[in-house]
Nucleic acid binder design. Structure first.
Length: 586
RNA sequence: GCCCUCGUAGCUCAGUGGACAGAGCAGCGGACUUCUAAUCCGCGGGUCGCAGGUUCGAAUCCUGCCGAGGGUGCCA
């Protein structure tokens, strides 16, 4: 996996009076990214080489540091010489050598090597690596947290499924992506709110209410047909039955009359209760539930925003409908705001909703997690924000592709066929919340995913979630064992961690801040489960190669217990950010 | 028709301008008197959909084509 760090050379003259010493005791949070420090060093070396006339003057580009795929190429690698060789009319290896000569010393840097065709490879000092086990263990749950984010007020909105039926598998994917993203942004120092937008107004809700009334009447023996385009699902009968059990026949009206609006409202309430319960089962808890009906209330955002659009001349009336004249502001076509029957479209209320987020409630940033079927909506919504002088850049939309449910080779149709699983709750019940979340998070949002129930359910080596959790449980086991033997990490000398497996493990631990940075920058939570697997693997290898509890070697045991403390913290944190449990035994 | 996303090992997927393209699973062969073998070690496996182009360098960027999914003025 290649990750990069960017630093602008121009901004990076060393702070006056600050000396870089070889001492490993200089106070620094373990969460600070060593990659950034190295990028910093390269930027300073470049500037100093230019000042000394070893390199010509030119506008310094961004310094990208990468993790080479092959360990012999170092821990970090700069390709800057290759990128600027034609600009400076020099051979890349000579550029690399010039930078190398001017590289300031750094406690973590053992060596920098020039490698053809012009890479500058940086090698971490093993002693510094070992010392980081202690720094990470000391930081504990505070590792890789805090002030690294922008400190912005961010709102993440996800799922927001119509409260007219139970959540399906696709909603689960949105839930996993949205809540994990929120967790990561919060960990990095943003002030994050998670919100569910309740579509409790509009046509779908009206159809739901009519279907519910039909089912309700059927319970009382009436021959009431499901309305045209009504919801065929059995679950509505369940709701009708529950309302009958709790409130009797109070919603029953003489045959042929319109249903009592109170019945539909009660139905939506019950549906929302179920949705909330299903989401809580996979560790999702919202800070706010926002009602579309409230949005549309007299004097509410919908009316204010529509007026504002109108005032700015973006609204036209045509063919009995009210349109957003979006073709005049860069869109391919106009879009309907109010249909000819007087009912506002989803688009119109969504404009109001997002204006409310960005302007009225003043979030610095709004991140929406949508299924790919809403893709066409992104551009026109941003255009609407621009037309309202709300910053479209403050609105990010993460689109995730759809989910195919499978059992081994067999595709499970998402139709409502009896006996087949369709709801999120069914999946969670069958495979468990941890595996459900892990599998949803594994593929990047942009790729369509197969959710294999058989694999997710399997409690064996084939299932990556247990591989990761097992690493945590194993560490707990060793820690227990150490306590029985009277050993602890107190007074440990981290410098003893020189074994290859120990060094590899610490290097993985050092990656967490970079992974979180990538997740936050790309809004791509799938890096987290991949990292979790890499980390678990580094631990399992360590476990097989390095005995921890060894009463013959108490010093080494203490050092390794320190490493285990650090590893356990990082593993638990990584799992926690995905809202997956870190078990003490399995 | 047009727009968006995707196409990488048998399967599920990472990698999206750098060095001989990676992981897990599946397959084959090894390792438990030792802190949990839900583990570890080794082996085999890829014209990165196809064809051009840009670049010192392309799975990655551009163009065209093929294939899958989604969208496309009064569904959400």
């Amino acid at each position: 996996m290649v990750r990069r760090s960017r630093a602008r050379a121009a901004l990076l003259s060393p702070p006056p009076g600050r000396r870089y010493t070889r001492s490993w005791s200089r106070a620094r949070g373990a969460g600070e990214m060593i990659r950034d420090e190295f990028a910093n060093l390269v930027a300073r070396a470049l500037a100093s080489a230019q000042a000394a006339g070893d390199l010509p003057a030119f506008a310094a580009p961004e310094i990208d540091l990468q993790h080479p795929q092959r360990p012999e190429h170092g821990d970090y690698s700069a390709n800057l010489p290759l990128r600027i060789q034609s600009l400076v009319r020099m051979r890349a290896v000579d550029v690399a050598a010039a930078i190398q000569r001017h590289l300031p010393p750094h406690e973590a840097l053992a060596e920098a090597r020039v490698a053809p065709p012009g890479f500058l490879n940086l090698y971490l000092a093993p002693g510094w690596v070992a010392s980081q086990a202690e720094a990470i263990a000391r930081d504990g749950d505070g590792y890789a947290t805090g002030d690294r984010g922008g400190g912005e007020r961010v709102q993440v909105e996800y799922v927001s499924a119509n409260p007219t039926g139970p959540l399906h598998v696709g909603n689960g994917r949105g839930a996993a992506i949205g809540s994990t993203l929120a967790n990561v942004l919060r960990a990095r120092g943003d002030e994050v709110e998670e919100e569910y937008y309740i579509n409790d107004a509009g046509t779908q809700v009206a159809i739901f209410a009519r279907t519910l009334y039909a089912r309700y009447q059927q319970i009382f023996g009436r021959d009431a047909p499901i309305p045209e385009n009504g919801y065929p699902g059995e679950y509505i009968t369940g709701i009708a039955r529950r309302i009958r059990d709790e409130e009797g026949d109070r919603y029953l009206r003489p045959e042929g009359q319109e249903p009592d609006p109170g019945l539909g409202e009660r139905g939506i309430e019950l549906m929302l209760e179920e949705i909330r319960r299903d989401l809580e089962a996979i560790g999702v808890r919202y800070s706010n539930w926002y009602s579309e009906r409230a949005l549309q209330a007299e004097g509410g955002p919908y009316h204010t925003v529509l007026e504002r659009l109108r005032d700015r001349g973006h609204v036209v009336e045509r063919e009995g409908a009210v349109w957003f004249a979006s073709s005049e502001v860069g869109e391919e076509k106009d879009n309907v705001l109010i249909r000819s029957d007087g009912v506002p479209t989803y688009f119109a209320t969504d404009i109001a909703y997002h204006f409310d987020k960005l302007v009225t409630r003043g979030f610095d940033r709004s991140i929406d997690i949508w299924g790919a079927d809403h893709q066409g909506h992104v551009s026109r919504l941003k255009t609407a924000m621009r037309a309202l002088d709300a910053s479209p850049e403050a609105l990010d939309v993460v689109l995730y592709q759809l989910v195919t449910l499978r059992r081994g080779d067999r595709i499970v149709p998402l139709s409502k066929r009896a006996g087949e699983l369709v709801t999120l709750a069914d999946v969670v019940e069958e495979v468990g919340p941890d595996a459900t979340r892990f599998f949803f998070l594994l593929p990047s949002a942009g790729s369509a995913m197969d959710f294999d129930l058989e694999l997710a359910k399997r409690r064996s080596e084939e299932n990556p979630v247990y591989y990761v959790q097992y690493a945590h449980a194993r560490i707990r086991g060793i820690l227990d064992r150490a306590r029985e033997a009277g050993l602890s990490a107190a007074g440990a000398d981290a410098a003893l961690l020189v074994h290859g497996a120990e060094q590899t493990l610490v290097r993985k631990l050092l990656l967490l801040p970079e992974v979180l940075e990538t997740v936050a920058r790309e809004l791509a939570p799938h890096h987290l489960p991949h990292y979790a697997q890499e980390l678990a693997q580094a631990f399992h290898v360590f476990y097989t190669q390095c005995r921890v509890v060894d009463e013959e070697q108490p010093e080494l045991s203490r050092a390794r217990l320190l490493l285990l403390d650090a590893t356990r913290v990082v593993l638990a944190r990584t799992l926690g950010l995905m809202s997956i449990t870190a078990p003490d035994r399995m």
